[in-house]
Design a protein around this nucleic acid. Structure first.
Lengths: 181, 181
DNA sequence: GTCTATAGATCGATAGAC
DNA sequence: GTCTATCGATCTATAGAC
């Protein structure tokens, strides 16, 4: 069994159940393996699986969304691609963010500081892009965290309301409100 | 021990640990009682405690925030008071919403449908208020879910970034963007 | 109403055969 | 590399004394 395929099967369990809810029985069932076999691939057990998935999720969100802000093209174009990338990362609002799912319990105690630092870096990158789009530093800061908040808000709301269809519409609206090119 | 004081001590455990992370040991420790004593106050055990807290949280969010939309005054004024009420509900961004904390694992399986229905009702009430502020139905719907999304987004982001100071500023900004009176 | 003690199930993790 | 079997800890919940 290939490790990246294994991780793909393990991820949804943590995403939907949270860290404490993702028991080894559920994780093993999701992979089709026995519990003991998971320890061959992840000797550190559940904690190592979670840490690996968190690392991969950060890398994936970086690659699909935030890395676009560092590419060429106009700042507006980069911001649009960032928003589209975030939408892709969440499967267009149908799939919760496992990083956010780790904001509770022992996962947050273990990884909260790292996650917070990562988000501050990302927010800074986003603010720099708003500056490149012509906004003054203070306003760029505000718009950056507003945009990030909107994205996570729509993601959470689409789950709380049980209506993921709204997410795609919100993405369109959010892109329209970006600074003009 | 008074039940409402008991609930006040139990709530933060579920808010920060989630449903699965809130063990009876932690719940008992938060109240100063022994585990067995909790079963005197809540014969249904952990599930009953959680269901009671969820009911109370919905009632509290209704009272502090959404009920303001049904009061007198201009639609803009009502929307402003709604936003302030939501801010108060979250202790100005420092305290996660337990309803949202139940969007994982067995709590979501048990209460997800009820929560989703409640949010759709609330969203409808919010949209009606935007209509009263002069917006056409489709736009009012959009603005309603945008506003709710912004509030939950800023709440989540203030936790993910570890910077609850931003929340108060965001509330100010959100209020400024409401339809003019 | 609160406690100690404990039952019975499930947890994360390990041993060892194949 | 995957399995069965099992360990010790922890979980939710209950029994029964005070």
């Amino acid at each position: 069994m290939d490790q990246s395929q294994l991780l793909r099967q393990l991820l949804p369990v943590f995403r939907e159940q949270g860290y404490e809810g993702a028991t080894l029985n559920k994780l093993a069932a999701a992979t089709g393996l026995g519990k003991a076999s998971l320890y061959h691939h992840f000797p550190g057990g559940k904690a190592e699986i979670a840490a690996t998935l968190l690392r991969h999720a950060v890398a994936r969100l970086e690659k699909l969304a935030f890395s676009r802000l560092r590419k060429g093209g106009s700042a507006t174009k980069r911001l649009e691609e960032f928003v589209d990338g975030f939408s892709a990362y969440t499967e267009h609002g149908t799939s919760p963010c496992v990083i956010a799912a780790f904001s509770q319990g022992s996962a947050w105690q273990l990884h909260g500081d790292n996650i917070a630092q990562q988000f501050r870096v990302w927010n800074g990158l986003l603010a720099a892009t708003f500056e490149a789009a012509g906004q003054k530093p203070k306003r760029a800061q505000r718009e950056a965290s507003t945009l990030l908040g909107q994205l996570y808000g729509e993601l959470q709301l689409s789950r709380l309301q049980g209506e993921p269809r709204n997410f795609r519409r919100s993405i369109k609206r959010i892109k329209k409100q970006l600074p003009a090119a």
